[in-house]
Amino acid sequence: MPILAFLRRHVWYIAFSIVILSAPLFTGNIYYLSILAFMATRLMIVLGLNLLMGQAGQISLGHAAFAGIGAYGSAIMTTRWSMDPWLAMLLSAVLAAAVAGLIGVPTLKLKGHYLAMATLGFGEIVYILLVQLKWLTNGTDGIGGIPSLTIGSIDFGNAQMFHWLVWGVALLMLRISLNLVDSRVGRSLRGLHRAEIAAMSLGVNTSFRKVQVLMVSAVFASIAGSFYVHYVHYVSPVSYTIIFSVILVTTVVIGGLGNVWGAVWGSALMILLPEYLKRYNQDYTQLVFGVMLILTMIFLPGGLVSFRTLVAKVRERFRGSRAGPVTGPEPRGGS
């Protein structure tokens, strides 16, 4: 039964899709739907960064800027040049990919973490440009009046419709990320992460693959930025600072490197937690993130997605040898 085998192989993905896509059927509450929408755009960025960090072992400290390219690209092209939003989204993504390529080619040829440094600088430059190029970006005032997305007569300004659109795209990105992990290219990325010279000697053009995955992650981030601004109809530079880049990297680590589902866990936590903390005191958010990052690295090096291993370990300790070895399979990237 190929259909049964298919269902079994993708059970987690299917279950998650059903749950998330049915959410608007249960609530029309704009606040809740907005949180879910932000979770979707966040997930898009984190998925790309998860591939870059978890698979290829490269760190980008400039992913806020790639999201910023999408956000501002869409904002400027639709409000100032009255361009079609979908075309603007596409062009912004192409621009983000091109910039990622320009940064990646010289830095990823070298071993070590040159990419982290280069993207850190790049993030700073983009932020400064967003603030300073007032004639184009309107400086710190930001750009308002960004139109909603439409397809024919369907208006995605409606929160429920937008939910289906943005989650449809996020789920698609999740799917293709899971597919990538379980492929020739995915394996080559994990290989080059562990022993680059060995991967090269097996025929992997390692710098090409690294640049490629950086470009993919830039496109994911850019698309997320575009969707975001078409939802909130406004953009300003404060959303795209280095702080946001650091939060993105934190999200990947807390969620779990090396497992695509970690991006889902991480994004959910990092969107929901601040919403929850907001009720008490907003100032604590960064602090809580920092503490969580440290706790994760100490107690859960595989990230949230590996909590099963932790649970198993704790249980083993309590039960002693009676429990026997822990054999539950980890949720792998390909499920």
Partner: peptide, 30 residues
């Protein structure tokens, strides 16, 4: 220079890389 914490089989599959053709897009779309 074994790829630790990848399976033994996946190690060899990377070795098969040069004999394969699937690029990133065909991987995306399986």
């Amino acid at each position: 220079k074994v790829f630790d914490d990848m399976s033994v089989l996946d190690n060899v599959k990377v070795g098969r890389y040069a004999r394969g053709h699937a690029g990133i897009f065909s991987a995306f779309l399986t």
